[in-house]
Structures are given as C-alpha cells and as structure tokens.
Amino acid sequence: MHPLSTYRPEEHEKEKASNAYLMSLIMFIVGLPLPIVNLIATVVFWLGYRRSSFYVRWHCTQALLLQLSLFFVNSYGFWWTMSILFGDESLSNAYLAYLFTAILFNLSELITTIYTTVETRKGKNIRWWFYAALTDRLCQPRASHNFMTQ
C-alpha cells in the first residue's frame, strides 16, 4: 500500500498540493503558444516546495512529470508550425493529424488536471496511471524524519 493512501493531509498541505496542479493549469492557458511556459512555472513551483511535506512534494512532482511529457509533444508541434510559417515545410495531412493528436492529449491533460486540482484540494490522493508510479520512484519520504511532517 502506498504511504499516502491512508494519510490525512493538513489544510495547508491540501492547498499547496492543489496549487501545484492549478499553477500548471493557469500557465497552460497563459502560455498556450509557447509550450515551455507551463513547464517553467511547474518547475518553479516544484523548486519552491521541494522542502515541503512528502504529500506536497509528491503532488508537485506528479504535476511536473505530466507537464514534462506534454512539453515534448507541444514543442514538436510548435517547431513544426514555425517551420511551416517561416521555413520550407508545407501544410500537410501529417501536420494536421499531429496537431489534432496534440490537442487531444492536451485536452485530456486539461480535464485530468482540473479534476485533480479539485480532488487534491479535498484531500484525496489522486494517482495518475504511469505518472504516479514514476513519481513514487522519484519522490520518496525522507528516512531521517517522519515523512508526513517534513
């Protein structure tokens, strides 16, 4: 069983964990044409809370990992668009198919993030398929202290 599954977070922890997702959500909308903006925002947020409790750190890391995968998808789409507008590439079926795939993945990320923001604020521990397992590997409770109160 995962240590966070039975953990009851404090009010301030719920808020911080929820804000990690909210931040990526806001920056996703603000920096929509530039895929790097939401990643930078999430990295800044993650750095800010890297000394927080395990609960907060874990959710910051999960939010960051999702942004990282979207960063690669969106960056490729961004440079493809630039090469069509300013380079030698032409508008093609493959480009439009990629654009719609990227939009689909971004939309599903958007819905998942909104849901996670709301649920994390309520204190529920939302675990995303693949990202949660990866977060478990990267973010672990510190052995020297009680992991919940660090």
Partner: peptide
C-alpha cells in the same frame, strides 16, 4: 497510445 492516435488521425484526409 500517442503514436496510435497520431497514425489513426493521419488516415483522415484533413486537407
């Protein structure tokens, strides 16, 4: 999954 969706959408004549 990503590649599959991309491949599936590539089959549509968007142009």
């Amino acid at each position: 999954l990503f590649m599959g969706v991309f491949w599936g959408l590539s089959m549509v004549d968007w142009m």
